[in-house]
């Protein structure tokens, strides 16, 4: 469904371009959850933003292709791109609380992004958020970080997209909420036959939720491996040390 072949992602600097990521080759199929692991600052967020051309073009140069059902997202016209983003792709970023306008009541976002009221009500209830009539009266700054994160998922899911990209879905939420997110994502992929791409440093969550796992290190992405294989093999230095720390914490 999504076939990415990006040769390079560079940041444009005054004197020169600096290469951030290279050789990003992967395919996303329907019905699966894919996780990309990587350390702080390894370029995880840049990677998922590069796929749908969300990086500002005056600052970043992306060379390659990202085919979504046959349309190259990186080389199509703005109108078509906007159409695809609107109907088929949703993102949930890490600091969602900052992506709401503090001067607007949440009602504004519900009207624009979650028009199906009964579906929204169910999702709010699922994620243990206040009922629609109460939450719509709030402003974004009245939400806690974890609530904002869960609410963004409600908006993403109610659009019924083909793919959801999640950037650090477990940061700022406790384990109980993370369990809810996990179960919902499984339902979304398995029952509705949709796809989810997660970038995270939370290995535990990734190992519980994913079907396939890959890792970013030294500016490039490893192939996606079935979860069990990823966690039972030691492929290269960074992978080895990541798994070693994970095991040490778990022991």
């Amino acid at each position: 469904m999504l076939d990415v072949n990006i040769q390079s992602v560079s940041i444009i600097l005054d004197d020169d371009n600096r290469l951030l990521l290279r050789n990003l080759n992967f395919k996303i199929e329907k019905g699966f959850i894919y996780s990309i692991l990587g350390k702080n600052g390894s370029g995880k967020s840049t990677l998922i933003k590069s796929v749908t051309k969300l990086l500002l073009k005056q600052n970043y140069e992306v060379i390659g292709k990202a085919l979504f059902n046959g349309t190259d997202l990186l080389n199509t016209n703005e109108e078509k791109l906007r159409e695809i983003r609107k109907n088929n792709i949703r993102y949930v970023f890490q600091d969602m609380i900052n992506s709401f306008d503090p001067l607007k009541k949440l009602e504004y976002y519900f009207n624009n992004f979650a028009s199906d009221k009964s579906k929204t009500e169910k999702l709010l209830q699922y994620f243990l958020l206040p009922a629609y009539n109460n939450i719509k009266e709030l402003y974004s700054y009245e939400l806690s970080g974890g609530m904002a994160q869960r609410l963004s998922l409600v908006f993403a899911l109610s659009a019924d997209p083909e793919i959801i990209f999640l950037d650090e879905p477990t940061s700022g939420i406790d384990y109980a909420a993370a369990n809810l997110v996990l179960l919902k994502l499984k339902e979304f992929t398995k029952e509705s036959n949709k796809s989810v791409i997660i970038v995270t440093q939370d290995i535990k969550f990734a190992s519980a939720v994913s079907d396939f796992v890959a890792m970013i290190s030294e500016g490039t992405l490893s192939p996606f491996l079935p979860k069990d294989k990823f966690f039972s093999s030691e492929l290269y230095e960074d992978h080895k040390s990541l798994l070693a720390s994970f095991r040490e914490i778990e022991s």
Partner: peptide, 8 residues
Amino acid sequence: AQDVESQL
């Protein structure tokens, strides 16, 4: 907001 290695 830290990876496992930084946590350790």
